[in-house]
Amino acid sequence: METNEEMVEVYRRLWLARHHDLLVEDWKLKGKILGSMQTTVGQEAIGIGAGAALRKDDFIMSTHRNRSHMIGKGADIYKMAAEILGKKTGCAKGKAGQMLLVDGEVGALGGCGIVGGGTTVAAGYAMGFKIQKTDRVALTYFGEGASSEGSTHEAMNFASAKKYPVIFLCENNGYCLTVAQMEVTSVKDIADRAQGYGMPGVIVDGTDVMAVYEATKAAVERARRGDGPSLIEAKTWRWGGSDVGDKNEYYPEQYWKDAKNNDPIIKFEKVLIEKLILTESQAKAIEKQTKETIDDAYSQAGKDPESGADEFWSNVWAV
């Protein structure tokens, strides 16, 4: 995010992620989308900011709450929409759905429905990059809930011992499923855990896209240099509950106040307007245009054919 153009692109992606998840939430509630649905509304700055600090040939491992990660890595919006609608034109022809979204073309590999299930795999991406003597890096998103999973601890210890180029990016929205973090977690700041694994641990405002970008960039540079992994904890707020349909009645009033006072898009928009990078009307136009992109993708993909037996039986085994 070194140029004005790159900053505007980040702003555009924030809106793409926002409009995307507002739409899928609406469609899910109307019964037009199957399965369970988790949204990234309120958390967009993390996936979009971190994604801007990565190269196309770097890999990300995402979570069940994955759209801003995917959009931040440059995943194809149309294929994502078609996948979520269970269509043949989807990124996995309707096999994967919203939770396991994937886009191999841009190294978005991929969504993951097992909490903490991706951290060891991401360490493996990094292992592969290092052994093959590339300067590529892997970044794994995980929540503060996944920070309690044994696999996450194994991944951090292993990666740090071997100096694998991986960034552990914890999105801390304060709720492990529906349980408040401090009821079930030994530390307030997940970044503190980094010390136990001999890696740097930093806390950033996860609703400040520039801060997420800068922290990720520093961790990526360290990884590319061969100095090993880092842990970034991005503090954020989850607007959409554990999943769509969860009415979040367990959130204290203050959580909502803080969440709404920390809208990552409004925050970044202020910066862009203050710096004269965008005018208010230009910002408004981007918001409108991204909504159209999402609306068009969903209305078009909705007309696409569904997969059938051929797709069901394809890639059962790798040849």
Partner: peptide
């Protein structure tokens, strides 16, 4: 887990 990741690369 790391074997899976390394295999993908």
């Amino acid at each position: 887990g790391t074997a899976v990741g390394a295999a993908v690369t």
